[in-house]
């Protein structure tokens, strides 16, 4: 199978292979997806392959959260400084945050439940799996890749694990956001002070509004790279197993004989 659109077109596709990334449907726990949407609107959608929604919700989250001061409000509330929390939340923005935040969780949960059904249908239909796609600019193919290597690259540099998996849109978008957010949060300067043991200086320089974006981004990116690696490996195995069954199980194959051996035993 060397084309991105296997023919005849399946009623329930299992996957789509573009040259810059591979999209697929597999069974997922809708609560896990909802959880990732709660940590950062957009992540749930990226996990289930709804990338445009996911990337745009990420942009929305970063703009509205920073303008409304949601992270700062969380920060002050958790540390018991409620008066400060009330002060930093900007009423010109904060109500815009609520409905779409809830919508992202609800919508990603709902989509997961639906897609799980279509994933089963695609499996039962033995919906075709493409294994290689190349165009003028990129080469994408299924292969076995190590989930642990994807995980380690994501830990070292969020986005790199996705580039290893050839999820180029997620990889580069996360890379850009990671650089922007570490810059505005002054994470690396805080890291420098922390490494030198100057903890007070680290506290002073770090910006909590921006720093609080990082944990969910970091956790998500490690998780998503790992899960994609595992699922792409399964696709690879499924595709190759089908190919072998179709091409190397000739009915005329001469099986080892047991007729004579059977007689000897009697």
């Amino acid at each position: 199978m060397y084309s991105k659109l296997p023919s005849p077109k399946p009623r329930h596709p299992k996957m789509f292979m573009g040259s810059i990334s591979t999209n697929l449907i597999h069974l997922r726990n809708p609560w896990a997806i909802l959880w990732w949407s709660a940590t950062f609107p957009g992540f749930g959608h990226i996990l289930i392959g709804s990338y445009v929604k996911g990337f745009l919700l990420m942009v929305w989250e970063i703009i509205v959260n920073t303008q409304a001061g949601v992270n700062l409000g969380i920060f002050y509330s958790f540390t018991g400084r409620f008066a400060l929390a009330k002060e930093v939340l900007d009423t010109r923005w904060v109500l815009l945050y609520i409905a779409l935040y809830t919508y992202a969780m609800w919508d990603s949960y709902r989509s997961t439940v639906d897609l799980n059904k279509y994933s089963l249908l695609a499996d039962r239909e033995e919906s075709p799996i493409a294994s290689f796609n190349m165009d003028a600019l990129e080469i994408n193919y299924l292969d076995k890749r190590s989930p642990w290597i994807a995980l380690v690259w994501s830990i070292l540099m969020p986005g790199a694990g996705h580039l290893y998996m050839h999820c180029l849109p997620t990889g580069f978008i996360v890379l850009i956001w990671w650089i922007a957010i570490t810059y505005f949060s002054r994470l690396l300067q805080a890291l420098q002070f922390t490494a030198m043991g100057k903890f007070a200086a680290a506290v002073n320089i770090a910006d909590p509004q921006w720093l609080l974006f990082l944990p969910s981004l970091y956790g998500f990116i490690i998780y998503d790279a790992y899960v994609n690696a595992v699922e792409y490996n399964r696709l690879f195995i499924m595709e190759q197993a089908r190919f072998l069954k179709q091409n190397y199980q000739d009915p005329a194959f001469f099986m080892p004989e047991n007729e004579t051996a059977g007689k000897e035993e009697q």
Binding site: F78, F199, V203, P208, L214, P215, S216, G219, Y223
Partner: peptide, 26 residues
């Protein structure tokens, strides 16, 4: 990863008021 993220958020927040700072606590 789900609970790791929770721990990291809490570590970042309380790191600002604890002696080791937000990075180590995260």
């Amino acid at each position: 990863m789900a609970l790791g993220t929770v721990g990291m958020v809490l570590g970042t927040i309380y790191g600002f008021v604890l002696s080791w700072g937000p990075v180590l606590w995260a």
